[in-house]
Simulated scan of single mutants.
Amino acid sequence: MEYVKAIKADNQKIFNLVYDKYHSQIYGFILQRTQSTYIAEEVTQLTFIKLWKQRHIISEQLAINIQLFGMARQVMIDLLRKEATRFKYEGDSAVTPFTDSLIDAIESKDLLQLMEHDIQNMPKMRRLVFELSRKQGLSHKEIAQLFSISPKTVEQHIGKALLQLKQHLYSIML
C-alpha cells in the first residue's frame, strides 16, 4: 500500500522501483495467456503507461500488484479486441489469430481463478457452506442438518459469501 501512496504522490523513484519489480512478472503473465512475445511486450509497456497516467485515481485499498495485474489483463483484452477487429476489417479472416472466443476464454479463466481465490480466503464456515451449496448442490436444509445449524444460518452464510464475491468483482471492474 506504501507503493500506491508514493505513486499517487508523483514519486517517480517508487514508480521505477515498481516497474523493475513487476515488469517481468507482467510480461510472463501476458505471454502465458497469449503465447505472443509481441503482445506481451506491448501489454506490459501499455500497463505501466496506464498506471502512471491513472496514478491519481488508483485505489489505496488494494496492493499495487493486484492493480497492476488487473490493468494488464484489461489492456491485453483491449489489445486482442483491437487486433481481432483490425483483421476482420482487413478481410483476412483466414489468418485471424485472436478471436472473441480466445478473449472470452481468457476472461473466464481469470475470473474463475479470482473467484476461487476469494472463496479460499473466506472464513472457514462460510466457505464450507458456500462450497456445499454451489459446488456440490446441497440444499440449505441438507447443509443445515450436516452442521447442526438452522437453514436460516445457511442462507446467511451463502448471502455473505455472494456479497463478498460481488464486492471484490465490482472493485476489480473499476
Rank of each mutant, 00 (worst) to 15 (best):
Q167H: 04
L46C: 14
E107Y: 11
L31M: 14
G70D: 04
I149E: 00
D104H: 13
G137H: 09
R134Q: 12
G159V: 04
K5S: 04
V129G: 00
I106M: 13
T85K: 15
A161K: 01
F87A: 15
F147N: 01
K88N: 02
P123V: 06
L46K: 14
M71T: 03
Y19D: 00
E131N: 06
I106N: 09
L128R: 15
F48V: 05
R81S: 13
R33S: 09
E131F: 05
T44G: 06
G70H: 11
L46E: 03
Y19R: 12
S93P: 04
V43Q: 12
Y27P: 03
I14E: 01
Q156C: 06
D10T: 06
L174A: 00
I172A: 04
K8F: 03
R127E: 06
K109A: 11
S171D: 01
D92R: 15
S133Q: 07
I49L: 13
I119N: 01
K141T: 05
S36P: 05
Y89H: 03
E155M: 10
F87Q: 10
S24L: 03
D118H: 07
T37A: 14
S150V: 11
L146G: 03
W52K: 02
Y19Q: 15
Q113T: 00
E116G: 01
Q136V: 04
K82H: 15
L68I: 04
I58W: 02
A144D: 02
I149Q: 05
I30W: 09
N121T: 07
K13N: 11
H56Y: 14
D104A: 09
H117V: 09
S36T: 09
I14N: 07
A84N: 06
E142P: 00
N65S: 13
R134G: 14
Y27D: 02
L128D: 01
M1L: 12
G159Y: 06
I39V: 14
F69C: 02
A94V: 13
D104I: 13
A72G: 02
G70I: 05
K53I: 06
N121K: 13
W52V: 07
Q167P: 09
K13T: 11
I7P: 02
K21M: 06
V4Y: 04
L31Y: 11
T85V: 06
I64P: 11
L132C: 08
N121I: 06
D100T: 02
F15S: 01
M173S: 09
Q74H: 10
Q32T: 09
N16K: 15
S59K: 04
K50L: 12
K5Y: 03
T44N: 10
E107L: 10
S93R: 15
L165M: 06
W52D: 07
Y19L: 07
D20Q: 15
F147D: 01
Q156F: 13
Q12A: 08
Q12M: 09
I30V: 15
Q74T: 07
Q156K: 14
D10F: 04
A63Q: 15
F15E: 11
F15C: 09
E60Q: 11
E142N: 01
